[in-house]
């Protein structure tokens, strides 16, 4: 499978001290890749650095096999973007946006755009700034999809949506990925959502990738073992990735359930979900 987004040695340092470590990333075509991380972990920064909205201090980004610096126009024609703070001119209405976008994207499809607006019940003559959070998000999704992009980059795309619309939007993403070669890169705090639709996951912590891989393989392989302090002392540090302690005891994150089971025969290993995985990767004691 070809890499559709290839990031090498991406680094970014802010004046406030936040630092993006050297990030290497390879996103395969035809996948839904979910980026997880707590607030401030660098999810939006990573997406913006990939798109050159924020300047990188170092590193290279190739999208669709081409450098973004050299082929900005060609690459961005193929990217649909939904971001909280990347606003379409909010004083305008969806009708006016259509006439603007039609001149900005070669592949802009007005009928597709109006279909989405109709489907999402978005009024044509209402200023964008007067739309509710959910409406605004749906409008952004409609605009992002209407120039037939190959890649969708979505930052918290379902924030503010009610469960019905959320499901509808997730279905749209699933339909989008069915078309050959289409790829989605999305960040979210909602782990259940990523668990539902993503093929691969990336967990970010303080600007560094702490885990990446195929979601199903990770879920199959990783697990949690809960031990009391006496049993915990007997476990070799190499056999777990991190742990958290609470009233129930020590919760250990293990990377390979079968290996652990072989070594500690009496241990009870629990399956893990993305939320537990993220908490243990980010907040756990290493």
């Amino acid at each position: 499978m070809n890499s559709i987004i290839e990031v090498k040695g991406l680094a970014k340092k802010y004046k406030n001290g936040f630092q993006f470590g050297k990030v290497d990333l390879s996103i395969k075509s035809g996948r839904i890749v979910g980026i997880l991380g707590e607030n401030g972990a660098g999810k939006t920064t990573l997406l913006k650095c990939i798109l050159n909205i924020l300047h990188r201090d170092s590193g290279t980004v190739n999208i669709l096999g081409k450098s973004l610096e050299e082929f900005d126009s060609e690459i961005k024609e193929n990217i649909g973007l939904v971001m909280d703070d990347v606003f379409l001119p909010e004083i305008l209405n969806p009708k006016e946006i259509d006439s603007i976008m039609g001149n900005l994207y070669q592949n802009w499809d007005s009928s597709e755009y109006y279909n989405y607006l109709n489907r999402f019940n978005i009024p044509l003559d209402k200023k964008i700034m007067t739309l509710s959070t959910g409406m605004l998000k749906k409008f952004q999704i409609a605009a992002a999809l209407s120039h037939h992009p190959k890649i969708l980059i979505l930052d918290e795309p379902t924030n503010g949506l009610d469960p019905i619309v959320k499901n509808e939007v997730l279905d749209i993403f699933t339909d989008f990925i069915k078309e050959k070669g289409n790829t989605i890169l999305l960040s979210s705090n909602i782990t259940s959502e990523l668990e539902k639709i993503s093929d691969d996951i990336i967990i970010l912590d303080k600007g560094n990738i702490v885990l990446e891989g195929e979601k199903d393989k990770i879920i199959d392989s990783y697990g949690i073992v809960t031990l009391n302090s006496k049993a915990f002392d007997k476990v070799d540090k190499k056999d777990y990735l991190s742990y958290v302690v609470d009233d129930e005891g020590y919760h250990l994150l293990i990377a390979n359930k079968s290996n652990f089971k072989k070594k500690y025969k009496n241990s009870k290993i629990k399956d893990i979900d993305l939320e537990e995985l993220m908490i243990l990767m980010v907040k756990g004691v290493k």
């Binding site: 060609e74 961005k76 971001m83």
Partner: peptide, 21 residues
């Protein structure tokens, strides 16, 4: 000022050749 007030600067950077256009 309208661009700044309505936060469209990042939108400009996200479109094809946005800054040059």
């Amino acid at each position: 000022n309208q661009d700044r007030f309505h936060r469209t600067e990042e939108f400009i950077t996200s479109i094809p050749d946005g800054k040059i256009k």
